[in-house]
C-alpha cells in the first residue's frame, strides 16, 4: 500500500487485511512493553492544517509504538497562518526527510492532491480531508464493530449481513463517507437517518438506504447505531432550526436509548455533544463502544503506518 487516501478504493481483501494487522497491533498493546521496533529509523510527519486533538494524538501514539520518529505540525501559529501553501509546507517537511505524511486538511481532495502532485515522495495518509473522507476513522469503526460482534474470533472476518445505521449530518461528514464505502465493501447493510437537508441530494446513487425517521430505525433493531457529531455552524446556516428540534427528532435521547435493542452497539466518532446528538445514558452505557473506538484507533493507525512504510506489500490501495 503506497498511500491511504480513501476507503472508496479499498477492496474487501485489503480492508480485512488492515483490520487483521490491527488485531496484531492490539495484541502488542497488551504486552509489558507495548512497543515494536518495526519502523525504527522511519520518520512520520503529522501535518495538521485543521484543528484536531484526538486524531493527531492517535497517530502520534501509533507511530511511537512502532518506534518511528514523529514530528507534528499544526497550522495554528505556524507559517500556514502566514499564507504558506500546502505545496510549500509539504515540500519543507519532505526536505527534512520524512517517510510518511499524515495529512489533515480542510479542503476535500487535499490528500489526493498531495499524493498525486509529485511535490513529495513520502507516503500520504489521509487523516481527514474536508467533507470527503476520513479513512482511518472508517477502518477503526469497522474494526470496533467486528470486535464487538466476534471478539477474539474476529480475524479474517468481514461484516457480511451486519446492519449499521448512521445518524446525523451525512452531507458534511467525512466520517459518514468513509464508513459508507468501507462497511458496504465489507458486506454490511448501511442505512442513513437524517433530515433531508443533511442527506446528499444524490443519495440514490449511494449503496445505502436512507430515511428521516430515527424511531423507525431503532425499531428495526440494527446491530450498530452510529451517531455523528452535529457541527454548530450547521444551525446558523439553516440546515435545521435549532438544537432542541434536532435533539428531539434525531438525538439518541435516554428515552430512545431505552427502546434500543439490547444487542445494538452505539458508536460515536467524538467529540460528543452530550444532550444534542447523544445522551449520557447512551454514551456511558455498556452498549457504547465510544472508548473502544479510541483504543482501536491507535491499532488501526499502527496497521496503516506499517503498511505504507514497511514497503513489502506491493499492492496499491
Amino acid at each position: 500500500m503506497r498511500h491511504l487516501l480513501s476507503t472508496r478504493d479499498l477492496d474487501r481483501t485489503t480492508a480485512v487485511r488492515i483490520l487483521d494487522i490491527a488485531e496484531d497491533m492490539a495484541d502488542v498493546a497488551q504486552r509489558a512493553v507495548p512497543k515494536l521496533p518495526t519502523l525504527r529509523g522511519k520518520t512520520v510527519a503529522n501535518l495538521f492544517f485543521e484543528d484536531s486533538t484526538r486524531t493527531r494524538l492517535s497517530f502520534e501514539a501509533a507511530a511511537k509504538r512502532l518506534s518511528a520518529e514523529v514530528i507534528t505540525f499544526s497550522a495554528k501559529g505556524s507559517s500556514v497562518s502566514k499564507g504558506e501553501s500546502l505545496k510549500d509546507t509539504a515540500q519543507t517537511i519532505a526536505a527534512m526527510g520524512m517517510d510518511a505524511v499524515v495529512l489533515r486538511h480542510s479542503a476535500s481532495g487535499a490528500a489526493a492532491t498531495l499524493a498525486g502532485s509529485g511535490w513529495i515522495d513520502a507516503a500520504v495518509v489521509n487523516a481527514g480531508d474536508g467533507t470527503h473522507e476520513h479513512p482511518t476513522q472508517g477502518l477503526l469503526d469497522a474494526y470496533s464493530i467486528r470486535k464487538r460482534l466476534h471478539g477474539a474470533a474476529s480475524r479474517g472476518r468481514d461484516l457480511d449481513g451486519v446492519r449499521v445505521t448512521i445518524v446525523g449530518d451525512i452531507v458534511h461528514s467525512r466520517v459518514a463517507r468513509s464508513n459508507v464505502w468501507l462497511l458496504t465493501t465489507l458486506g454490511a447493510e448501511v442505512s442513513l437517518v437524517a433530515p433531508a437537508t443533511l442527506l446528499p441530494g444524490a443519495i440514490d446513487s449511494w449503496p445505502v438506504t436512507a430515511s428521516h425517521d430515527l424511531d423507525a430505525a431503532i425499531a428495526a433493531k440494527p446491530d450498530a447505531l452510529m451517531m455523528l457529531r452535529v457541527q454548530a455552524e450547521r444551525m446558523t446556516s439553516g440546515f435545521f432550526p435549532n438544537e432542541r428540534e434536532y435533539a428531539r427528532e434525531w438525538g439518541l435521547s435516554a428515552e430512545r436509548f431505552a427502546r434500543l435493542d439490547a444487542d445494538t452497539m452505539v458508536l460515536h466518532p467524538g467529540p460528543m455533544n452530550r444532550g444534542l446528538e447523544i445522551s449520557s445514558a447512551a454514551a456511558d452505557s455498556a452498549r457504547s463502544v465510544v472508548l473502544d473506538q479510541v483504543t482501536n484507533g491507535v491499532s488501526i493507525r499502527m496497521a496503516v503506518l506499517y503498511l505504507v512504510l514497511s514497503g513489502n506489500d506491493g499492492t496499491d490501495a
Binding site: S108, G109, H132, E133, R177, A202
Partner: peptide, 17 residues
Amino acid sequence: QMNEGALSSELGLAGWP
C-alpha cells in the same frame, strides 16, 4: 466547487446545482 450531483456528494465538494 463542482456540479452538484452524485459525484459531488461522493467527493465531498460543495455542489453547484
